[in-house]
């Protein structure tokens, strides 16, 4: 097991390295001029040239990249071009908010998704199953930002039950978390349902019935435990997708998280900030995946062996 973890950790290094390279190159290819943006509108050509020189923007690409990587390996992500604060500080302020948002959304995903999946699977093709599955299909089909806006319109603007934006209290969190978690919950519900229906056909469920085990125990103890193993992977992947989703949801609800930071920085052509933000997001994504893989392997060891 330890060997597996170490192997997977080593595998993440080239992935993260690749991410830095791709982010760097994309930022170079995006049209627009960093120095121009920095200098502001109406700045003289001279000021722009000076800025370019100061930030090393005239160096060849590989030198710029190399410099950046050198700093990174020393724990230095550079400084924001906008306000000259260290990138790392800015990220550390914004990141916890995004993580909080993603974790709450994942909890919504798990609780709603698995519950709905069980309701469906217990009586397949019944009215309750059909209802749940239609809702799940809608949940997958709606983009999260659209759902966010609709929720905002209904609950904040029309009913005025909940605040429109921000991230200050539980009331603030309800709508963004729901908007972000719904799609995942729908996917998890469908996965739980099909996984449970698969498990129900297994010989050991027949054995449990032949032992006279009560129905609810057959569902919760014998079926669900096995059915959740593939669901773990889906939840993990969903968490990754959520990180992407935070960019949109943070914008819709004006939450000052990492996603919004990255989006603002792109608009400002604040290259070090974008790179830092994307890098941190990627590392989290990779680590979550690693964690999910380990969990999956742990739960699956009993099945894998044959």
């Amino acid at each position: 097991m330890l060997l597996f973890i170490i192997k997977r950790l080593l595998q993440t290094i080239p992935v993260i390295f690749g991410v830095t390279l791709v982010v760097f190159l994309i930022m170079q290819m995006v049209p627009g001029d960093t120095a121009q943006v920095l200098a502001g509108e109406g700045a003289s050509q001279e000021t722009i040239e000076d800025l370019r020189e100061e930030y090393g923007l005239n160096d060849p690409l590989h030198v710029q990249y190399f410099d950046y990587m050198k700093g990174l390996l020393q724990g230095d992500m550079g400084q924001s071009l906008k306000n000259e604060r260290p990138v790392i500080d800015e990220i550390m302020v914004r990141l916890p908010i995004s993580i909080e948002l993603a974790i709450y959304a994942t909890i919504v995903t798990i609780i709603f998704g698995i519950t709905a999946g069980i309701i469906s699977a217990v009586r397949p093709y019944s009215a309750s199953d059909m209802t749940v599955m239609v809702i799940a299909l809608l949940g997958i089909s709606f983009p999260s930002f659209w759902l966010g806006m609709i929720l905002m319109f209904i609950f904040s603007v029309e009913l005025q039950w909940l605040p429109v934006s921000g991230w200050d209290s539980v009331q603030h969190m309800v709508l963004p978390v729901l908007a972000l978690g719904t799609a995942g919950a729908a996917i998890v519900a469908r996965m739980t349902r099909s996984s449970m229906l698969e498990v129900v056909r297994q010989d050991y469920i027949r054995t449990a019935k032949a032992k006279g085990i009560k129905n609810y125990l057959i569902i919760y103890k014998h079926t669900l435990r096995n059915a959740l193993i593939p669901v773990i992977t889906v939840v993990g992947l969903q968490f990754g997708a959520l990180l992407g989703g935070t960019v949109l949801i943070e914008s819709v609800f004006a939450i000052n998280g990492l996603g919004r930071l990255i989006l603002e920085s792109i608009r400002m052509r604040d290259l070090p900030m974008v790179q830092g933000g994307v890098l941190v997001a990627s590392i989290i994504f990779v680590l979550v995946n690693l964690f999910v893989d380990i969990l999956y392997k742990f739960f699956n060891r009993r099945i894998d062996i044959n």
Partner: peptide, 16 residues
């Protein structure tokens, strides 16, 4: 009345 089945590999729950 108890019953035992053919496949010992699959007739036990793998996670219990």
């Amino acid at each position: 009345i108890s019953m035992i089945f053919q496949e010992p590999m699959t007739s036990l729950n793998p996670v219990i």
